[in-house]
Amino acid sequence: MSLLDDRTRQEVQKALTAMTEPVKLVLFTQGEFGSLECEYCRETRQLAEEVAALSDKLTLEVRYFSKDIEAAQALGVDKIPAIAVLRDGKAPHDFGVRLFGIPSGYEFGTFVQSILLVSHAKHDLSPHTLEQLAQLKQPVHIQVFVTPTCPYCPRAVLLAFRLAVASPLVRADMVEAIEFPHLSSRYQVHGVPRTVINEVIHIEGAVPEGLLMEELMQVNDEAQMQRLRELHRST
């Protein structure tokens, strides 16, 4: 049985006509038959297959997490289900856009938008944000924790994805909080969206671009990051 109904399929197909460059989805899965190791791998794969079939500029590559270890490591995939959204075609590029957990509910829109974003690479960030990103001295890993029923979450995830597209030093993950309870526990996620930057900077809610950047730029201040690490350890 199809996951997408006819109307949604038509809408996605229409949305994907805005793709300029080809995109490759690399899906990591395993144990798709109801095993405990990945509750939603089967559905995530089916969803990715259905979406990939809606544009000739979109391809899907399925990888098995326990077998394709090198590929998983190369793309920074450490949990499943995972989708890496990569620019394909003549100038392939990995902007660092990842989705961990099934992109269902409100996050389905995020999934489609992430494909478009990687395809056309128009991040629409403010000149000030771009200036700040240019000053980054080290890699930034943004994890945005979400639930499928959270209407505020897509804005937080897409902002993180736009930053990843704009800066080679930024990688952005959508993480479905309920599917990865160990991470929710580790990062004390009791409400979403919750954004975690380089493990220790925590932001509640879908904050505006300027506010997120203010928090994010702390990564350049090693003394401040050390303080946050110590604070994080003590709680």
Partner: peptide, 12 residues
């Protein structure tokens, strides 16, 4: 939530 459908809520 899976049954809720995959709506393009934040589409343009």
């Amino acid at each position: 939530s899976l049954e809720l459908a995959f709506a393009l809520n934040n589409a343009a």
